[in-house]
């Protein structure tokens, strides 16, 4: 046996620190969802909104017809048969309110879709492209913001009432949604543009560009997902505004036209008779109020859930 140089005995060296098994980092969506679930307002708001949406969807279960008049039953006060009473044509008000809710909520959702598409497109192009295109798009946005929106809404509603084009005729749901949408995409455009101006300068975007990604891919895959928080919050609030705007416009008589019920035109029709038959005015408004407040609470919860500053604040790090 030859003398070999002494070799350090092989022992199990302990790792620098005994690390307990680390859970995989949580995805942003999960974190947001957890925070949203803990938010009291969001809990109440989502529950209420869920009930309202379900009720509206189940409207056909009502034993009454929303449009057929039953003149003998007119102006019945609220009772077990008619929980919200009946209207001047003897129709069950609850049934009409539920069908009206379908219209009002559909307008709301359509408006969110329209403003989201228009606003995000304008904002993304302006924010990413910069230069003359940005300047031009922002001047258009400014001009749109200078419109006295309620007055223009009334004017367009009054004009479109007379239009006889298929799907747009007599102030259809789509007409009203388009008109409201065209007057309210600007907030999204500004929001998205501002986010893009910051994000496009960040390293991961530069890296992606260096790797040869097309502008289209950079915008859709890398920048847009990072703006999703504020967009979702704004979209929720927009849903509330849109429902209020539709009811306001229909209340004035320039929105959805009877006999199709909407919460606004139910209130509008109530105007002639509400002094003697107050339930006609009370119930449609309660539905608008409950919907708006639940939407606002959900929006509030989402804002807090998406707000990174809020997290740090709660953790006591700021």
């Amino acid at each position: 046996m030859t003398d070999s140089p002494p070799v350090a005995p092989v022992v199990d060296l302990p790792l620098p620190l005994p690390v307990p098994a680390q859970p995989a980092p949580e995805s942003t969506a999960r974190v947001v969802w957890k925070r949203f679930r803990r938010h009291l307002g969001a809990q109440v708001g989502s529950l209420l909104l869920l009930i309202l949406v379900l009720a509206v969807l189940l409207a056909p279960l009502s034993p009454y017809d929303p449009e057929k008049s039953r003149i003998l039953d007119r102006f019945q006060p609220p009772s077990w048969q008619h929980p919200m009473g009946t209207d001047p044509l003897g129709r069950d008000l609850l049934t009409r309110i539920l069908y009206g809710g379908r219209i009002s909520m559909t307008v709301g959702v359509l408006v969110v879709g329209i403003t989201l598409t228009l606003g995000v497109t304008v904002g993304a192009i302006a924010g990413y492209a910069g230069g003359i295109l940005d300047h031009l798009l922002m001047r258009i946005t400014d001009a749109a913001l200078t419109l006295p929106s309620l007055l223009v809404l009334i004017l367009l509603g009054a004009i479109m009432r007379e239009v006889e084009v298929p799907i747009f005729e007599r102030n259809s749901v789509l007409t009203i949604a388009v008109v409201i949408g065209l007057l309210s995409w600007m907030t999204f455009a500004r929001l998205v543009r501002a986010a893009f101006l910051t994000l496009r300068e960040l390293d991961f975007v530069t890296a992606s560009r260096a790797l040869g990604a097309s502008p289209f891919r950079i915008v859709l895959r890398h920048i847009l997902p990072n703006t999703i928080g504020p967009i979702i919050v704004e979209a929720t609030l927009e849903l509330g505004y849109a429902i209020i705007e539709e009811s306001g416009l229909s209340f004035l008589g320039f929105g959805i036209q009877p006999p199709t019920p909407s919460w606004g035109n139910l209130l509008s029709n109530a105007q002639e008779n509400f002094i003697r038959y107050p339930w006609l005015a009370i119930f449609p408004g309660i539905m608008i109020f409950l919907t708006i407040i639940s939407v606002n609470y959900v929006g509030d919860g989402l804002r807090d859930a998406f707000d990174p500053y809020k997290v740090l604040q709660k953790a006591g790090e700021v």
Partner: peptide, 22 residues
């Protein structure tokens, strides 16, 4: 205040008339 912001003013007007006039 949160509730107040969700009250449409046109509905509030009708309700006030019902309460204070009727």
């Amino acid at each position: 205040a949160f509730a107040g912001q969700a009250l449409p003013d046109f509905w509030l007007g009708l309700i006030l008339i019902i309460v204070f006039y009727v």
